[in-house]
Design a protein around this nucleic acid. Structure first.
Length: 578
RNA sequence: GCCGACGUAGCUCAAUGGUGGAGCAAGCGCUUCGUAAGCGCUAGGCUGUCCGUUCGAGUCGGACCGUCGGCUCCA
């Protein structure tokens, strides 16, 4: 049986239950979604948890009665008459938009819904069911429309599968980067500073530094040049770029004396002005300019979410200026860069989407088509499957979005590759070609990690806070068993630091069991236990978070082992939780 | 921004409209211990902020700030 069909059928059963319990409620729509289903209802008060229980009980009753799902094809006229008599204005609205002369309706018991189907045979087919939450949702997803009351639920073929799903939700809650970030001392977002603004604590700042150092080096290795721009620029530049017209509601704008400035929401203008600072030859292209660019965007308060959606963040941002003929190769190069980088950070899988021209946009249609074709060709070349999101590109060009998948299979939007013919035009960018003619270059906007903030959020949830050795802010916790080993432990710590290893020393006068427990909870990859024996032999007793007690080894041997593991990077503690 | 829920010690949570408590964490002391929690004492609060109702507000009402679940939007 198809899960989607099952869940869609469950949504009909839910709508039936709601109508039986609360006859005045008007029906919206009720599709199956990724992890379950929902149905939208129009009524004044939202559903309370108690009402949700009642609805679920009613649903179980309908399921028990095992009512048959039946399909009928009727004329649109008849359908209008039917839903008029049932007083369902939203269904009439849907019918109004339908072009076909005939529509299908599905019935079970006394319930009837406008629906393409298909459905399961009878309501008894829903074997495992749970209503999960309620939320407001705009009719047809448009914020100018009425806010409806949505009930989310999920259904499976067996109770066991449902339990499995609920366990994953539990696991996801445990891994929540907002919880881990605070508990483990990585970052906080505080009311006193402002919503959506991240304060990195020592561990978070170290993790971020490690990531930034790595990605900076990788860019240089791949032929990018580093540039650095200011965080505020005159408004005029944003007028020229089009951001002032197309992105103003997201920008922080202010005045210095009489001159208007804006905090940058993007890094492109700076990079374009570096390009424009002198005459460029075709021999210089592709020119790849990279910056760890911190940007600020005025995101609506309701969308802020931990590190995933913030108002100030840093992108690993680059702009590639190239010839049209180089476009496809450059895109392929970026795709390779993304794939290799994700692998190094321990992500095994990703999905790809292309977004095409939106209604609110600038540039010639032919440029848009050419750029979109180049993106598609590059993906075909790499034999990557992709989904197409019509009309969801940036205002200056089409884009490829790459979503990494974490240990629980959840997608995270990070990398994006955007083609742009429009901004080089607006800024009057040119290069001199072989024949001495001035030609407009193509620009590619691209990020690999996306925002460092969001990427850290993804990493934290992927590893449940237990980072692989090379990313771990603290790599070794040194645990002296009694105070007599403190001096030796301090020397050990400086020795490790000499070798670019990040140790931390637990000098507290508590039992070693307690120190080990705390180090485990802090998710530190290695513990170096030092007792009387170790001091005498110049060794350490090593305990790995992943593999437990590894026994005694010479300090040099331990350092060598750590360095080898750091050198390999990659997954390490992959998937390990608690 | 919109709909709803929520906001009590650093953290997790208690407190029929009538004197705000506990565990963990912290500080001090004792303990010097071999692979996931040793013991005792101390301190910690204008209950998110501001108005209002009331003899009396953590508790009831309103506004604001913020968080959470969604919608819309997005790196």
């Amino acid at each position: 049986m198809n899960l989607e069909t099952l869940r869609h059928s469950a949504s009909h059963i839910m709508a039936d239950a709601v109508k039986q319990l609360y006859p005045g409620v008007k029906l919206g729509i009720g599709p199956a979604i990724e992890d379950g289903f929902y149905y939208d209802f129009d009524r004044k008060e939202p559903f309370t948890p108690e009402e949700l229980d009642k609805v679920e009980k009613k649903m179980r009753q309908i399921i028990k009665e095992d009512q048959e799902f039946t399909k009928e094809v009727i004329s649109k006229k008849e359908a209008v008459k039917l839903f008029k008599s049932r007083r369902e204005p939203y269904k009439l609205g849907l019918l109004d938009e339908l072009k076909a002369d005939e529509v299908s309706i599905y019935r079970h018991g006394k319930f009837v819904d406008l629906c393409k189907g298909p459905h399961i045979k009878s309501t008894g087919g829903v074997k495992a069911l749970k209503l999960l939450s309620v939320a407001g949702a705009y009719w047809r997803g448009n914020e100018n429309n009425t806010m409806l009351q949505r009930i989310y639920g999920t259904a499976f073929e067996t109770e066991k599968e449902l339990e499995g799903y609920l366990k994953i939700i539990e696991e996801a809650k445990k891994r929540d980067h907002r919880k881990l970030g605070k508990e483990l001392g990585y970052f906080t977002i505080q009311n006193d500073i402002g919503a959506g603004l991240v304060l990195y604590h020592p561990r978070g700042a170290m993790l971020r530094t490690i990531i930034e150092d790595y990605i900076k080096k990788e860019h240089i290795r791949r032929g990018y040049q580093l540039v650095i721009g200011p965080h505020i620029l005159k408004s005029d530049i944003w007028v020229r770029s089009g951001h002032y017209d197309y992105y103003k509601e997201n920008m922080y704008i202010f005045k210095i004396e009489k001159q208007e400035f804006a905090i940058r929401p993007m890094n492109c203008p700076g990079h374009m002005l570096v390009y424009k600072s002198r005459i460029r030859s075709y021999r210089e292209l592709p020119l790849r300019l990279f910056e760890l660019g911190t940007v600020y965007r005025n995101e609506k308060s309701g969308v802020l979410h931990g590190l995933l959606r913030v108002r100030g963040f840093t992108q690993d941002d680059a702009h590639i200026f190239c010839l049209k003929e180089q476009l496809e190769d450059e895109i392929v190069g970026v795709i390779d860069f993304v794939a290799e980088t994700l692998k190094v950070f321990g992500f095994e899988d990703f999905e790809v989407e292309i977004s095409t021209r939106p209604p609110k946009s600038i540039g010639d249609e032919s440029d848009w088509e050419e750029a979109t074709a180049a993106l598609k060709k590059a993906l075909d070349n790499k034999k990557l499957d992709y989904k197409i999101n019509e009309g969801e590109g940036a205002f200056y060009g089409p884009k490829i979005d790459i979503k990494l998948k974490d240990a629980l299979g959840r997608p995270w939007q990070c990398a994006t590759i955007q083609c742009d013919f429009a901004l080089p035009d607006r800024f009057g960018l040119v290069y001199t070609d072989r024949d001495g003619k001035r030609v407009k270059p193509v620009m590619i906007h691209r990020v690999i990690l996306g925002s460092i903030e969001r990427f850290i959020g993804a990493l934290m949830e992927h590893y449940a806070g237990a980072f692989p050795l090379w990313l771990s802010p603290e790599q070794v916790k040194i645990i002296p068993i009694t105070s007599s080993q403190v001096d030796f432990s301090r020397e050990l710590a400086s020795k490790l630091r000499e070798d670019d290893i990040r140790p931390i020393l637990d000098e507290r006068s508590v039992k070693m069991q307690k120190k080990i427990r705390d180090a485990e909870l802090e998710k530190i990859p290695y513990m170096a236990v030092v007792g009387e024996k170790e001091v005498r032999a110049g060794s350490v007793s090593v305990r790995s978070k992943k593999d437990g007690d590894l026994g005694v080894m010479k300090i040099e041997e331990f350092i060598k082992k750590l360095k080898e593991e750091i050198r390999q990077k990659g997954g390490g503690l992959y998937g390990k939780s608690t």
